[in-house]
Amino acid sequence: MISVALFLYILSFCFYVISQVQNNPFYRRPGFFLLVLGFMCTGINLFLDAVSIGHIPAFGIRNSLVIFAFSVSFFFVLLYLRFKVDLLGGAVAAFSGLLTGLALFFDKIQYIGQKDFSIFMTALHVFFTFFANAAFFTACVIGLFYLVQEKNIKLKKHGIIFRRLPSLEILESSGNFCIAWGFFFLTVGLGIGVVMSKQVFGHFLMLDAKEVWSFLVWFLYAALIHGRLSSRWRGRKAAVMAIIGFGIVVFSFIGINIFMDTSHGEYFMGNLIIRG
């Protein structure tokens, strides 16, 4: 099923590229539908994995990549339903395609050894934080688009990119929308993580590097939302903050595991799961 999703994402990306190269919006429609189909296939793949292992499939690199692809496409669909704009279609198809393609290189988890409450909480924690990261990624790309479009309008450059990108208001509203949902998912994900930490380790906070950086991300987005609500950070400033915010998300998500000691990686990859 994941190969089918990959094929659909690649096909969707091709249609978006043709639409851009030929300057013909006609090809965006099939691109959009193929992307939605790819999203559905990714969802079905997660469901089938859940049935086969008898648990939420949120462990191991393969599942992490698939969840990330699923959540990025999910936000694309959500934005379309909310704003009726086929925003970032090509970028989402390419990114989701890349993630599902990478997932194919990793083994599938066949069996989860331990099925207690803490594992269930861990799975939920992973799911929610991935959705938060996907939302922040989308907000970051929208922020980049905002900066480009704003520069085009300020400098009076009305080339092809100016025409293709939507209005500043739509870009700003959709960025806000993603950050609000991302913050919600992050809050729930961190909350679950804290409860789980108490269950497994006996403390609400272990204060390892990953936790510290995760809370830093939470505070940063809380400040960003406050800045937007109080109208101090609007437009360009908010777009820059969304990009910086995602930079910190990437570091706290990947960089920490590489440069610092953290219990997270071990916990997920440890003896709780058995690979096929």
Partner: peptide
Amino acid sequence: ELAKKIFGN
């Protein structure tokens, strides 16, 4: 056209 690119609606 420019107003629409700034405000959308």
